[in-house]
């Protein structure tokens, strides 16, 4: 499997995702520069960071790059795309996913482990996981407060597009277990077709024994059944 990692000016989790793909998953990994107009990969990771400094609005400038046009074509083919943190923000800004990401209600950047509940397995990233599975993963963001209109939320919900929700260790979603005030505890959503997933938590930071947590790996194992895992 070929995994492509997009690189924008200001991406800073690009190498982390490349490391995950190449060293941990053992896939053929490559970087895809933002000016490229063609994507040669089986799976694309839109990594976290501060594309264009997040100066206008997170992801708002990155959406205009040539590679995002290519990504749209890539996703139209039904190929899997995962946007993590700033990558999620870029996917939302470019319209590949619905909703928007507001500032955390605490008005502070927050880096900590959170628990996530798998609420949809209608994506290739979660298709092999049981509904209600609980994953622990870190977040690290200032604008992770997901928001959609009530109508859009109903549509997403009934269409199984709410993939991950913040919860506590037992799987219950409560205000105290929601780190950023996101609507209905949403941590990750997918598109209608299910092949594009956006999420605020960082699976690439929770994919190695040495780092004390491998829950992030579980999002990729279904896609990489043929690959020998490191």
């Amino acid at each position: 499997m070929k995994i492509g990692v997009l690189v924008f000016p200001g991406s800073n989790c690009d190498y982390d995702c490349y490391h995950l793909a190449a060293q941990v998953l053992g896939a053929e990994a490559s970087f895809i520069w933002h000016e490229e107009s063609h994507i040669n990969a089986d799976l694309v990771i839109v990594p976290g960071g501060f594309s264009y400094g997040d100066y206008l609005r997170c992801g708002a400038i990155a959406r205009f790059t040539p590679v995002m046009e290519a990504l749209r074509n890539f996703s139209d083919l039904g190929k899997p795309v995962i946007g993590i943190c700033n990558g999620f923000q870029i996917l939302v800004e470019s319209g590949l996913l619905s909703g928007t990401l507001l500032r955390n209600t605490g008005l502070r950047f927050l880096c900590k482990d959170v628990y996530l509940r798998v609420d949809s397995n209608a994506t290739p990233f979660t298709s092999h996981l049981a509904l209600g599975s609980i994953l622990r993963m870190p977040i690290a963001h200032n604008e992770g407060n997901y928001f959609v209109s009530r109508d859009e939320y109903s549509r997403l919900n009934s269409n199984h597009q709410i993939v991950l929700r913040y919860c506590d260790a037992s799987g219950a979603s409560r205000a105290e277990s929601n780190p950023n005030g996101s609507y209905e505890h949403i941590a990750g959503v997918c598109n209608a077709r299910g092949n594009v997933l956006g999420m605020m938590p960082h699976p690439e930071r929770a994919s190695e024994v040495l780092l004390g947590n491998q829950d992030g790996l579980r999002l990729f194992t279904g896609l990489l059944k043929q690959t020998v895992l490191a």
Binding site: L20, L110, P138, R205
Partner: peptide, 14 residues
């Protein structure tokens, strides 16, 4: 304080 810092980026923090 330290939760306001990204202490994990680069995936080296053991």
């Amino acid at each position: 304080v330290f939760e306001q810092y990204d202490y994990m980026v680069q995936t080296n923090t053991v």
